[in-house]
């Protein structure tokens, strides 16, 4: 079993950004992140887990680093009951078999 962990470099520390269990999706997403000028660095870790031996191995399969620091401070939203905005758009449908 394999899974892919995308990490972003923030303040010199690699932080988990997201998980994929599909390599192509993970690599595509990493490429998009690497193209973002605000991102300091991106790397993808591939974890291989062997159920029988119960051993997991991890390899870095992709790394992109930028020299400059990523700008910007965190902002905080204050919205409440934001889900309510979506509620009127909900519609129920009849079952449709997968084709």
């Amino acid at each position: 079993m394999r899974s892919y962990e995308i990490q972003l470099l923030k303040g010199g520390i690699w932080e988990v950004d997201s998980y994929f269990d599909d390599r192509d999706s993970a690599m595509s997403d990493a490429d998009q992140l690497a193209a973002d000028l605000r991102v300091q660095g991106v790397r993808v870790l591939e974890e291989k887990y062997d159920k029988e031996s119960n051993i997991a191995t991890c390899d870095v399969i992709y790394t992109r680093k930028r020299n400059e620091s990523a700008p910007g401070d965190r902002r905080k939203g204050t919205q409440q009951t934001a889900l309510d905005r979506l509620l009127p758009l909900t519609r129920h449908g009849a079952r449709r078999d997968v084709k």
Partner: peptide, 25 residues
């Protein structure tokens, strides 16, 4: 999956999370 991930990230900006208030179907 990737388009939604990209859209979500664009809404997030520098933040860790976006809000449903920012999701416009």
């Amino acid at each position: 999956v990737l388009r939604l991930r990209t859209h979500w990230r664009a809404i997030c900006g520098e933040r860790d999370y976006s809000s449903f208030a920012e999701v416009d179907p």
